[in-house]
Every structure is written in C-alpha cells, then in structure tokens.
Design a protein around this nucleic acid. Sequence first.
DNA 1: CCTATTATGTATCGAATGATACATAATAGG
DNA 2: CCTATTATGTATCATTCGATACATAATAGG
Lengths: 203, 203
Amino acid sequence: MAERGRPRSFDRGEALRHAMMLFWEKGFQSTSMSELTAAMGINAPSLYAAFGSKDALYREAMALYEEGDGVELGRQIADAPSAKAAVEAYLMRSAALFTRPGKPAGCMVVLSVIHGAGTSPQTCTALRDARAEAQAMIEARLRRAVEASELPAASDLAAIASFYVTVQQGMSIRARDGATRPELEAIARAAMSAWDGLTQARS
Amino acid sequence: MAERGRPRSFDRGEALRHAMMLFWEKGFQSTSMSELTAAMGINAPSLYAAFGSKDALYREAMALYEEGDGVELGRQIADAPSAKAAVEAYLMRSAALFTRPGKPAGCMVVLSVIHGAGTSPQTCTALRDARAEAQAMIEARLRRAVEASELPAASDLAAIASFYVTVQQGMSIRARDGATRPELEAIARAAMSAWDGLTQARS
DNA sequence: CCTATTATGTATCGAATGATACATAATAGG
DNA sequence: CCTATTATGTATCATTCGATACATAATAGG
C-alpha cells in the first residue's frame, strides 16, 4: 500500500522551506510564482500538484514558520520560572530570532498580512489568529502567576499582555528597518522596566 | 503667464487625497491602477500626465499624509511642556489617529513598506527616512529636556526614543488588527509606566 | 508485460498589470 | 481666427501574473 505512480523527484519539505524563506522575506504578494518555482527548483505544475495553489503553499509555509520560531517562543513563555522571566525571555529571544544572519528580519506572521496582502480571507484569518495566540499565551502565563500568588490578583492581565505583544510586534518592524540585535535587546529591556509599575498597582 | 492649453478638468489635490486613502488602506502593491483611476474619477492618461507614474503618485500621497498626521504628531512632540508630556502626547494622539472612523487604521508610513512593497528604491528610502524622523524628533525633544535639566544628563536618549517609537509602530499593527482606541491608549499608558525607570537611572 | 496511477516538462492559457499612442477637445497667446 | 499647448477619452500596448492542458516518463499492482 505504498505510493502508486511516479515518485516525486524533489524533497517536499526542503522545497517548502525555500518557499517559506521567500514568503518571509518578501511577503505574499511580492513573491511571484516564477520566483517560487526558481527557489524551490521545480516547475509550476509540480508546485500545484504538491501544494495546491500559491495561497495554500503560503499557509503551509506559515505553519512551518510557526513550528519553528513560534513554538520556540511559546516554550520560552511556558517554561520560564516566573511571569516576569517569561515576558523577558519572550522579548529577548525575539530580539535574537529577528536578527539571525541568513534569515529574514522580523516575524513572518506579523509582517506578512498588514494589508491583507492579497491573501485569501481564509489565510488572512489564520494569520490574525496566529497573532492573537501570542497574546493569549502570555496572558495565560500571567494568570498562572496570579494563581501562584506571584502577581496581585488585581493586575490587568490582558492589558499587560497586550502591551508586551505590541512591543514585540513593533520590534519586527524595527528589525525590518535594520535594527541590530543589541538595539532590539535595549528596546526589550526598556519595555521590561515597565514591569513593576504594571504589576504592582491597580489602575 | 497663466497656464496654457486645455485646463485640467479635475481637482488635483482632491484626486491625490483619494489616492492617498487607497494607498493607506491597501498598500502600494495591492492598489491597482484601475482602482486608483476609479477612486480618483479620472482616466489613466490623466493620472500619468498629472502625477508621472504610480510610484510618483505614491510618493506624493505619502507627502500629503505626512503633512497631515505627521505634522500633527510632530507638533505634539515639540509643543508639549515637558519631555514626558511630549512622549505621552505622541502615543496618546497616535492612538486616536490610528482609529479614526472613515480613515484607514494605523500609520501609512509604517505599514506601507514592510516588504519593500514593490516600490522603487527611491520611495523605499524616502519611507525609511520618514520613519527615522519620528525617532529623531523625540530624541531632540529629550535632549532639550536634558539641557533644561529636566532629565538627568546620563539618560540614554537614543534608547528611550527608540523604545517609544517601537511602541508606536507596534500600535500601528495592533490598529490594523482591529484594536480600538481605548485599547491603544491602554498600551500607551503601559509604555509610559516605564518612563521613570528609563529616565532616572543610568544603565 | 500490461494497466492504472502519479509526477514532470513544455508550452500556453485568460486575466490583470502598469503604461501609452493617437485622435480630439479646450484653452491662451498672437 | 490661427496656432501652439495642454488635457481628455478610447483603445490598446507588452509583460507578467497565477494557473493548466497535454503528452511523456516513471513507478506499483496484477
């Protein structure tokens, strides 16, 4: 019951990785099928047979991106010993991920769909959900901290999470504008200096 | 020595305003010439005669945007009675500007060129410069505060300005993601709660 | 072998893109 | 009026876009 027919002559995962890099660097609209097929080393019909459409390929590329950097950031948040350490790790690790040599700067999910970017409504929704998930993860980590009496129960967890996600998304833009890792880390530290004020007092 | 030849039959400024709204909402690449001519109420040859090219039209639209919201934010920064008030006004006013009914959410300059967006290198550079200008204005206002002994001389002005600009740029993304004005204002207040820590201590 | 099934490469599809040629209309200067 | 100059509308340009038709090649099951 193995695969029937002529076997695929290229590595699907590797081709997807190349597509992800292109989409990440240039966005959905600015990446043409010709560029994709060239980077993936295949012809258009093979691409359509393997991935369905440009839009579906983009969705797979996004999923691959999230499996990498997304999962890593999620782990940083979940595994940190304290809420403050979790947020700090989230920002500091982002600073590193956003400036890796050989990889596009910034976060693919944040940067790709700012104008809807010509993707289908389905993809657009998926990306919005992905962005919302980061905030939900941080908020969940903060709630855990409240339950552990690490943070005061009166803290506005949603507002705190919203603030730090906003900083991280802003860092994506700065990274695209050429900000270096130390510069992004300085931004992250600046954001962390709001921590005590945000967590101790109620409004 | 008035204008020779057949007079233009449309209001150039009004047409430019319509073009700006479209570019602002959809970005450069996602806005087609057909959409532009439809929104501006003119035919393609008139557009090219009046503005030169799609790229040149975009540059004029960007300039018009900066004359509006850009100048207003600049005034907020320059006219505020203190450095802290200047930064706070910058963020709070941004929250309002980013969520005006009837206008696209977020900042046109920040959102438009994240992927180069298919614009010419010339336009791309102009947009990068425009983004850098905001940080320079804040830094200049902070320097004025240091000279007035309002802030300690040891403060890392560049880092402070960089942080607040990053927050404001992040707010553009959040606005595009549907954040309301109160939500953005909460983010602005959260960012301001870092102020004392950023301005009092040296690293 | 033979057939069914799947992948590949060539060549191309219709649609949309940004941009113009060209004839005509409308104004100013002389 | 006449001419020069500029704008407009129609019709269309060459390119590129995302996506396929089709014949051929390569595999598995029988």
